[in-house]
């Protein structure tokens, strides 16, 4: 379970670039919730995810994962609870290391790294089976450098890495935005498969309203550093893109102007 209580974050305070990206965001995710997050550019979606991940400390408020207050924990310690996939396929993997080495690194998330061998024979077998699920043939290229893989392959691998040690929360930051539509659909399918298999509590940012409606059991919309819509249950199931646009106008009092979000 994730509890976010009234968090604030201002970047570059006291300068002309000052930007308050989160203005008192509160959000509670129950175990097994799959929440999609939408909103225009600069609405604070990525900032929210980074706040949870601990990329930097929030100015005020608290973040509680499974009853443990992680607000002051540095990023690498919080990683124990979190699985993450980034927008840029380059960010989630180590390009100069092998596929199996990347998996082995992820398999030790939240554990002490000592002088034991970095990857065991047993792990190799296990990874081979897991890679088959992706259906990309990566199980036959386990010693290939990740830098040789395509963006879609990398994102699929990053997803697998994020779920190797079952995370309390899975954070997906527009992880299909940099991919072509066909690959994006495939990676989303894999995402669904892994989330359902492990019953992961998930927060997924997307630019695509349709994806946000189709996936997950709950949808939140952000604007100007706040959550302005929170739809779940039956209401979410019957939601359409038009409904969403209407609701946005109702709540915000202006027209939704992000073409990319509408067309996507």
């Amino acid at each position: 379970m994730l509890e976010i209580k009234n968090i604030f974050k201002t970047f570059n305070p006291g300068t002309i670039n000052e930007k308050t990206a989160l203005k008192g965001v509160s959000l509670t995710l129950n175990d097994g919730d799959f929440v999609t997050v939408i909103g225009g550019n600069g609405a604070g979606k990525s900032t929210l995810l980074n706040a949870i991940a601990g990329t930097w400390q929030v100015d005020s408020g608290s973040i509680i994962i499974d009853g443990k207050d992680v607000t002051n924990l540095p990023e690498h310690k919080r990683a124990k609870f979190l699985g993450r996939v980034f927008q840029d396929p380059m960010t989630g993997t180590a390009a100069t290391m092998e596929i199996e080495e990347n998996l082995a690194l992820a398999n030790r998330r939240g554990k002490c790294r000592g002088l034991k061998i970095g990857i065991t024979a047993g792990e190799r077998k296990e990874y081979k089976e897991l890679l088959k699920i992706l259906g990309l043939g990566l199980e036959n290229r386990m010693t290939a450098k990740v830098g040789l893989l395509s963006g879609g392959q990398r994102q699929a691998l990053t997803l697998l890495m994020a779920s190797l040690q079952k995370p309390k929360i899975l954070l997906l930051d527009e992880h299909t935005a940099a991919l072509d539509p066909k690959t994006a659909a495939k990676v989303l399918d894999t995402t669904e498969t892994i989330i359902n298999r492990d019953k992961l509590t998930t927060l997924m940012i997307t630019h695509n309203m349709k994806d946000a409606i189709v996936h997950g059991n709950r949808l939140i919309m952000m604007m100007d550093g706040k959550i302005i819509l929170d739809i779940s249950g039956e209401e979410k199931k019957s939601l359409t893109v038009e409904d969403l646009l209407h609701k946005f106008e109702e709540v915000s009092g202006e027209e939704f102007s992000n073409d990319k979000a509408i067309l996507g």
Partner: peptide, 18 residues
Amino acid sequence: SAIRATGCNRAMSKAQGI
């Protein structure tokens, strides 16, 4: 391996708890 990952991709390393 953690040292190699750190040199290769710091963002990824932190996300993997390094």
